[in-house]
Design a protein around this nucleic acid. Structure first.
Length: 579
RNA sequence: GCGCCUGUAGCUCAGCUGGAUAGAGCACCUGGCUUCGAACCAGGCGGUCGGGAGUUCGAAUCUCUCCAGGCGCGCCA
């Protein structure tokens, strides 16, 4: 008998639906309640079946019947189907489906259909992922790299399951930090000596390099030198005064600011590009405009926000964020008339939603978690629901080499920015290590391990499985003339069944990984799949098997290869044909 | 003090939307290459899942509490 459904998952799902309606006589609300809790999955232990469902147990409470009686009703539905070797009721009421060898092998031809069945309930959304968004004040550090790898992987994964995803980098080019960068460049251009160079300024070598592009007259240098006299003792006040004075030299200030921004963004884009991360959009804070322009995005958003959820107190304008569980209300416009960082974010997030995205994902360093409530309040204050925003936190990454923590400060001699990390271990390995651990947990990045092309390095273990299949593929094709496009045997070794089980698990793993925004789950799946491939490879010699067996083995291995290739691709990593 | 994250084998970590006997790598011990790639495989050793209580058919997973560690609590960004 030919199976009505090509993928076993579809077959079991429809059988269960039928059992609920016709055998259990459940009403609509009971059915929905039961299906919500029901799982159809592949057990870790093959002795519990190739597929298993907990439906009898979750139905028992709702239908006030015993799990085993209900399980027997379910089994009836499948009685006539020859794809099953047997169906058992086990333990407290698990229904375990065992497939015949033939139908199990045949499943490898329907992996795509199974994938479609797995993701069919997903409603496509229009998603904007904003990440990295580091201030344009210098090269990216290794923490930014982690966010970059994470956001980029999420984009690829969300798109695969049907969402429309745009990635965006928010450039803070309008704030005080940018002013300090500009001042740092100009002071370097004016050849201010090391002793007089303010400590609040950016000290990096890249600033010196940029300053070479700004040519000042002797008079201008003299003027700038004079700005350093009689400064306030407080570091912050001093740098603010320097910036204020320098801004009066509006021509060279604008020029230095522009060159500085472009140069540093150039550095950042280079590092991201080296990591393989490209953004769809670059949004400049400066494009929000200022309060002096009544038509600016900033002005309009703040008016709306303050009108609906703000108030004036002590000369400043506040957002009543305590209405949304924030600890205290937050200032939008300072007493001196300047806007806060939050004010820009009010306008920026309103703009994001005005652009028609129905889901915003912000990826932030975990140290910003206290900022979530006020952004939610900000979004509500401009007429949108806070549920449209999802903030995903990324914990900091520490680098270790030979068991010692690498310091990441500019002052010490060892400064590890993202670029130097990529240079040390390579972009693919860097991404792999970033993504191998859940994003919201601290990452100890072992540089020695990442650099070592050894068995200790999981990256190579997975790549090796892919390369082995690739190598076999070439030899097979040379010997047989072509590659198999279907299954031709009815039986196979247990080691191959193990690979098939992993292939069947792939769709649900991917879905789980996407829905939880956790790419690392994919990596652990790959490790297990690679392990099964290596085991099979050691146990069975494909090229020495009969033609019928060999083509079957090769077909399954090629499916495994494709799954590895695609999964690594989602992580932004190129699978290796040879190594 | 309040908020968020974390605590699983000697080490590094999976598993956490409740599911069957808690997994892997490293380390340590024992085996497997005269050709499909040994960057591999097979076996052994190793755990009161931080402590306690609760919820239920079932808890590493959910709730509460305590202990320990990290981070955050600006009219900074």
């Amino acid at each position: 008998m030919q199976a009505e459904h090509k993928s076993i998952l579809s077959l079991i799902n429809s059988g269960i639906a039928s059992a609920l309606k016709n055998e259990f006589k459940a009403d609509q609300s009971q059915i929905e309640n039961i299906l919500k809790k029901t799982t159809v999955s592949i057990p870790d232990d093959i002795s519990n079946g190739h597929w298993t469902s907990n439906i009898a147990m979750v139905s028992a409470g709702i239908l006030k019947s015993s799990p085993r009686d209900l399980a027997n009703e379910v089994i009836k539905v499948f009685a006539e189907n020859e794809v099953f070797e047997k169906i058992e009721i086990a333990g407290p009421g698990f229904i375990n489906f065992f497939l015949t060898s033939e139908s199990l092998l045949r499943q490898t031809e329907y992996l795509h259909e199974q994938f479609l069945e797995t993701i069919k309930h997903i409603n496509p959304r229009k998603i904007l992922i904003e990440f990295v968004s580091a201030n344009p004040t210098g090269p990216l550090h290794v923490g930014h790299g982690r966010g970059a790898a994470y956001g980029d992987a999420l984009k690829r994964m969300l798109e695969l399951v049907g969402h429309s995803v745009t990635t965006e980098y928010y450039v803070n080019d309008a704030g005080r930090q940018m002013d300090i960068v500009t001042a740092s460049i100009l002071l370097r251009s004016a050849n201010i000596g090391a002793e007089d160079f303010p400590s609040a300024c950016y000290q990096g070598e890249y600033i010196k390099a940029i300053s070479a592009d700004i040519v000042l007259t002797p008079d201008e240098c003299k003027t700038i030198e004079d700005f350093l006299k009689d400064l306030p003792a407080d570091e912050d006040e001093a740098i603010d005064k320097i910036c204020l004075d320098l801004k009066n030299l509006s021509k060279i200030w604008d020029s230095a600011k522009n060159i500085g921004l472009q140069s540093i963004l150039g550095l950042i884009k280079k590092e991201l590009s080296d990591l393989g991360v490209d953004f769809d959009e670059w949004f400049y804070e400066s494009s929000l405009g200022g309060l002096d322009d009544s038509s600016s995005l900033l002005k309009q958003a703040l008016e709306q926000s303050i009108d609906t959820a703000g108030y004036e107190k002590e000369g400043a304008y506040w957002l009543r964020s305590t209405d949304y569980d924030d600890d205290k209300d937050r200032v939008l416009i300072r007493r001196d008339g300047r806007v806060t960082y939050l004010a820009s974010d009010v306008a920026y997030h309103k703009n994001k939603l005005d652009r028609g995205f129905d889901q915003l994902i912000n990826i932030w360093g975990a140290d910003h978690h206290g900022y979530i409530k006020r952004i939610e309040a900000a979004i509500e204050s401009v007429g949108y629901s806070k549920s449209s925003l999802l903030v995903l936190l990324v914990q900091f990454a520490n680098l270790y080499e030979d068991g010692k923590k690498l310091k990441m400060s500019t002052r010490s001699g060892t400064y590890y920015d993202l670029g130097s990390l990529i240079e040390m271990v390579g972009a693919d390995v860097t991404r792999f290590f970033y993504l191998a651990k859940q994003a919201d947990q601290h990452l100890d990045f072992d540089v020695s391990l990442a650099k070592s092309e050894s068995k200790d390095n999981l990256y190579y273990y997975i790549q090796y499985a892919h390369a082995r299949i690739s190598s076999l593929e070439k030899k097979y094709e040379a010997a047989m003339g072509s590659l198999p496009s279907s299954i031709s045997a009815n039986e196979c070794p247990e080691a191959l069944i193990e690979i098939i089980q992993m292939l069947m698990k792939h769709a649900s793993t991917l879905l789980n990984s996407v829905e939880r925004y956790q790419p690392h789950l994919l990596i652990y799946f790959l490790r297990e799949l690679a392990q099964k491939v290596h085991q099979f490879y050691n146990e069975v010699n494909v090229l020495k098997a009969s033609p019928e067996e060999a083509s079957t083995y090769m077909f399954v291995l090629l499916q495994a290869k494709q799954v590895i290739d695609q999964s690594l691709g989602l992580l932004g990593i190129q699978a290796k044909e040879q190594m």
